[in-house]
Design a protein around this nucleic acid. Structure first.
Length: 741
DNA sequence: TAGCCCGGCGTTTTT
DNA sequence: CGCCGGGCTA
């Protein structure tokens, strides 16, 4: 093995890299160098002279795929370009476009996102006279998506249900059937179709299958614990001939079962592939021993897992601390203060706040704004979800395929053309009757008794779109989109509005056009269809910009794969995390626990577990009990009496009881224990370690306070004390003249 | 047709 | 408490 491939790898990593023949499963715990192993493995294959054309690496996210490409390129400069590294969805989209003719598919199909799906389902429900108040459209979308994840067609759904669910299941099945017809008519595929259709095609076309099996003589699958059944079958088909399949994953980090991921895929790998070898990566390079052992204590409570325990050579500094807050504002204020306090040591981008639900982000935004901490909120408002962007995209989609009813309805009256809901309703009814698209119904509008004015408006809309369509042949996506913005009157309407909001919208549209320009400069396929595919399969572009020095706010789900020096996991209360719905169901509870594990293992040095005794939910105050995960992590919480902080009137500045603190022993022993300090807070301090974190002190000028941080030793022992007035001070212990109280 | 008001609802969301 | 969507009125 070439030397450049082995240096910086540990022995298990090397073992995983070198095992290239036959099935291999790599259990790669958090922070164990998983990506490194995959990229080195690819480089190793290439260094052996294996053709890049026969290597396929599949990931879930675009980010992971592009990172992987970049890292392989760094290892092997020349040949990497021909290695097929892509996401499941783009692999399938590519496959389906190339092989479309063999399976009676329009090669220029659109890709529907969640909103498109939901709108289509709504149409179906109207048509089938199903009351949207009884069953939500989004429930049906989820059910249809899950069915596709399981490779089920509409008739499969009803055949295997209990009688109690029969109504819901049979309506789902009916809607699913109609939904597929509508998608077909619009030449659209949803995300689930991309995988399912690919599987179906490969099963039906043995010659094609064989061809792709050659292309995937060596397969690698990243985040295997997140594969759903369809993806599992897809991989199985591709790997069947050569069986050089290498899957990488961590069952402890499986948090997407609600989206169809099946943890059994990874747990049963050895049953599926009898002669499979397995390698465990257990040396962690990210976190401190404290963090790892705490996280392990939590995840150990799960039954459906393969036991593995991470260890590290990292020094045992930093801390794991539980913070008890009075309410959600207090929680945010305390965290904001802790960040300010430590901001001199690290960049703001080294701090992250994780929460279970998006609704929790607001308090943090308020608190951070108040004290002037720059933050970036990840995941909520996606660029491509903004109304103005979706409008312009809808124009592009309609230009690409005028039969796309979803896009048609979105923009028919944007900007206002005097075509209202009732006109559309009439047109829709008519189109349904004639089994044609809304677009095709326009020339026949005179037959349905629409007014002259409406007819005229419809016709000029049609003309507008047709003018754009003519540009398709010899104009780029950029030119078309520019013309759409101006000629449709969209820009003009925003300009006349001239509000702060409308100006932001104009900026966003300009940003969109520059994104399209960017796409054209980069991508080999400069067509409109190419661009539409790209955006359908790409999520947020700008959300996590690591170059900006800001604190990160995000949900725990989005945290997977990232790492930060300081991690704050918030809202650790029964009912919120673990979220109430999951508690009665053991499998779901275990998934919550894995989510906790994911969150904890993001931390490199300092981990804070936060909970509030009181929290306002939907305008009502709720009293909480600390999350079981806090106890499982080895901390004891006093549940009986919620603390009332003395001497405080302003609730936002009530002081802090870092009730339970990790007692750091200077040892790398992985299994060392935690000492509960809860009861010692107000008791006499022994001389040896008298400035313990959590100790109450009295300062001659600042008054009562509590030690919440320490650094340095002996003569240089520095303390951070939080005083009752809400101020934080950094003090040199030797001269601070503190008295214990 | 468009704007307003009222009622219901309120996990997580790689593609 | 706040948002979104449906229905009703000007």
């Amino acid at each position: 093995m070439k030397e450049f491939l082995t240096k910086n790898l540990n022995s298990s990593q090397i073992e995983a890299v070198r095992c290239i023949e036959g099935p291999l499963i790599i259990f790669a715990g958090a922070g164990t160098g998983k990506t490194k192993v995959i990229t080195h493995r690819i480089a190793y294959l290439l260094s052996l002279g294996i053709s890049p054309w026969s290597i396929l690496a599949v990931t879930f996210t675009n980010k992971a795929a592009s990172e992987m490409k970049k890292k392989v390129a760094n290892l092997i400069s020349q040949t990497y370009k021909n290695v097929w590294i892509s996401t499941f969805h783009s692999f399938c989209a590519h496959f389906l476009r190339v092989e479309a003719s063999k399976i009676n598919l329009d090669p220029d199909f659109l890709i529907y996102d969640f909103m498109d799906q939901k709108n289509t389902v709504k149409d179906c429900m109207k048509e089938l006279n199903i009351d949207e108040k009884k069953i939500k459209a989004s429930t049906i979308v989820n059910k249809i998506s899950r069915a596709k994840d399981d490779l089920k067609i509409p008739s499969d759904i009803t055949s295997e249900v209990k009688r109690s669910d029969y109504f819901l299941e049979s309506t789902t099945s009916k809607i699913y059937e109609l939904y597929q017809k509508k998608l077909k008519k619009a030449s659209a595929l949803d995300f689930g179709d991309l995988i399912m259709q690919t599987v179906v095609a490969l099963q039906r076309l043995p010659a094609t299958l064989e061809q792709y099996q050659e292309k995937s003589k060596y397969i690698m699958v990243d985040e295997y614990q997140d594969t759903n059944h369809a993806q599992y079958i897809l991989i199985k088909l591709l790997a069947k001939k050569h069986c050089n399949i290498c899957v990488v994953g961590d069952d402890d980090q499986s948090v997407y079962s609600w989206r169809g991921a099946d943890i059994n895929n990874i747990l049963n790998f050895k049953k599926d592939y009898r002669n499979a070898k397995s390698v465990r990566l257990e040396q962690n390079y990210r976190s401190t021993p404290k963090i790892l052992s705490t996280a392990y204590k939590v995840v150990k409570h799960n039954n459906a897992r393969i036991d593995k325990q991470l260890w590290t050579k990292n020094p045992d500094d930093g801390s794991v601390i539980v913070i008890k807050a009075i309410n959600e504002n207090d929680e945010a204020t305390k965290i904001a203060n802790l960040i300010l306090l430590n901001a001199y040591k690290y960049k703001l981008s080294s701090f992250a706040v994780f929460y279970r639900t998006n609704a929790q982000s607001r308090t943090f935004e308020d608190a951070f704004r108040r004290v002037g901490i720059p933050y970036s909120l990840v995941g909520t408002l996606k660029f491509y979800d903004r109304a103005e962007i979706k409008d312009i995209i809808a124009y592009l989609k309609l230009i690409h395929n005028p039969n796309d009813n979803v896009s048609f309805k979105r923009i028919i009256n944007i900007p206002r053309r005097g075509i209202g809901k009732t006109s559309i309703k009439i047109l829709e009814k008519f189109a349904l009757l004639k089994n044609i698209s809304l677009w095709e119904a326009i020339p026949l509008a005179s037959q349905v008794g629409l007014t002259k004015g409406t007819q005229k408006a419809l016709n000029s809309f049609m003309q507008l779109i047709e003018t754009f369509s003519k540009l398709k042949k010899d104009s780029s996506a950029k030119i078309i989109s520019k013309k759409v913005v101006t000629h449709s009157g969209y820009l003009k309407e925003l300009e006349t509005e001239n509000t702060l909001e409308s100006r932001t919208k104009i900026e966003n549209i300009q940003e969109l056009i520059s994104a399209i320009t960017d796409f054209e400069n980069r991508s080999p396929d400069k067509s409109l269809a190419g661009y539409l595919t790209q955006i359908a399969l790409t999520s947020d572009t700008d959300s996590l910009d690591e170059s900006k020095d800001k604190v990160t706010l995000m949900t725990l789900h989005l945290a997977k794969g990232l790492e930060f020096e300081y991690v704050f996991i918030c809202g650790l209360e029964e009912g919120l995390f673990p979220i109430w719905e999951s508690v009665p169901n053991n499998e779901e509870l275990e998934e919550e626990r894995r989510l906790m594990y994911v969150g904890m293992t993001r931390a490199k040095k300092n981990l804070y577990l936060c909970w509030a005794t009181e929290r306002t939910v939907y305008g009502k105050i709720k009293w909480n009990v600390p999350s079981r995960f806090i106890a499982e992590a080895g901390f004891r919480c006093d549940l009986t009496k919620p603390e009332q902080s003395p001497n405080f009137k302003n609730p936002n500045k009530k002081y802090f009881r870092a009730e339970v603190v990790y007692k750091g022993k200077d040892t790398h022993n992985y299994n060392n224990d935690y000492e509960i300090k809860n009861k010692q807070l107000l008791s006499p301090i022994n001389n040896i370690n008298k400035y313990k974190i959590g100790t109450m002190v009295l300062h001659p000028t600042f008054g009562r306070g509590k030690i919440i941080e320490q650094s340095g030793t002996e003569e240089n022992l520095k303390l951070v004390v939080l005083f009752e007035n809400g101020q934080w001070k950094k003090l040199l212990a030797k001269v601070a003249n503190l008295r214990f109280i």
